[in-house]
């Protein structure tokens, strides 16, 4: 590489926030999705991710509009199926940065089967669960993470069941390698955790507790007003290498544990186990095919 090319490359690799800004977000003002978008755009800039080498995959719901607001490649698919789509992208392309934006309905309800197995596959993906504990896009129905008693259009006198805890579920799956929790109203912690998730090799699962000013406006007010009700794991001496401890911490929601609950860099990634180290050339395919034909050939005598 000559000097000019080198300079050009340096210049190329510097990005501004605007370089990642896609369409104008159509989320409600005060919606936690905006905070997530800001943190992620900041991450992209700081890591100088090539926009064309970056893919955001989502399902359906308020959260899943996310890719439209990025100026990268994006895949806004169907309800619940963001994870398998992202897995396909990852399997096909080790060179891309692949993110998943999913919601509590998308991930923990209609896409629950994919969620469990995605954790088990442990493919190199950063998964952000935008958990506002309510269906927003379809206008206020209880979601699996809605606390018992949540009044919604499908549970007008309060929901009947205890909320599903996405952290304990994820931590219960074999091969889990990264689980974190953050809240949308602490932007610096949000950024730090998103960044750690990005750098983790494997599936990083980040539950982001987010506000829904439209349908559950008061849900998190007590937590925001009283900082003691949020517990920073980093400063509390939590050992993120201890799975049992992580499960214990995950099961408590008051104070809300914030930070990395569990991290294990040694879990193999499915794509690394599956992808062939052989360089796939037409010649390799032809040779393989001919060898197979040989097995089944009846030769003229």
């Amino acid at each position: 590489m000559n000097d000019t090319a080198c300079l050009l490359k340096l210049y190329d690799e510097k990005y501004e926030l605007e370089d990642y800004q896609g369409g104008v977000p159509r989320w409600c003002s005060g919606c936690g999705d905006n905070a997530i978008l800001a943190a992620v755009q900041r991450l992209c800039r700081d890591e100088a991710l090539h926009p064309e080498k970056t893919v955001f995959v989502s399902g359906i719901g308020c959260s899943s509009r996310f890719p439209h607001y990025m100026r990268t490649y994006g895949f806004h698919g169907i309800h619940g199926r963001a994870l398998p789509v992202a897995e396909g992208v990852r399997m096909a392309r080790p060179d891309l940065h692949v993110f998943v934006n999913t919601g509590d309905g998308d991930c923990c309800s209609i896409g629950a089967a994919h969620w469990i197995h995605a954790v088990r596959y442990n493919m190199n993906l950063s998964v952000f669960l935008h958990d506002n504990q309510i269906y927003g896009l379809t206008k206020k129905q209880a979601s699996p993470t809605s606390p018992r008693g949540t009044k919604s259009n499908t549970s007008p006198r309060g929901s009947w069941l205890e909320a599903l805890n996405p952290l304990t579920v994820t931590l219960g799956v074999q091969n889990v390698s990264f689980v974190a929790q953050v809240v949308d109203w602490m932007p610096d912690v949000l950024y730090e955790v998103v960044r750690a998730a990005f750098h983790h090799k494997g599936l990083s699962f980040v539950r982001i507790i987010q506000r829904c000013p439209e349908w559950l406006p008061d849900q998190w007010e007590p937590f925001i007003k009283d900082p003691k009700r949020v517990q920073r794991l980093e400063s509390s001496g939590h050992d993120a290498g201890n799975l049992d401890r992580a499960r214990e911490v995950a099961s408590k929601m008051d104070p809300i544990p914030v930070g990395i609950l569990y991290r294990n860099e040694n879990v193999p990634c499915y794509e690394d186990l599956r992808r062939s180290p052989k360089l796939r050339t037409p010649e390799l395919v032809r040779t393989g095919l001919e060898a197979e034909f040989d097995k089944f050939t009846v030769w003229p005598s």
Partner: peptide
């Protein structure tokens, strides 16, 4: 020959995975 057969968690997952890889 450097190919992968992915046994997905279900039929929907298999199709979505295929779509992701094709994309």
């Amino acid at each position: 020959v450097g190919g992968v057969v992915h046994q997905a968690e279900d039929e929907i997952g298999a199709c979505a995975f295929a779509i992701g890889a094709s994309y």
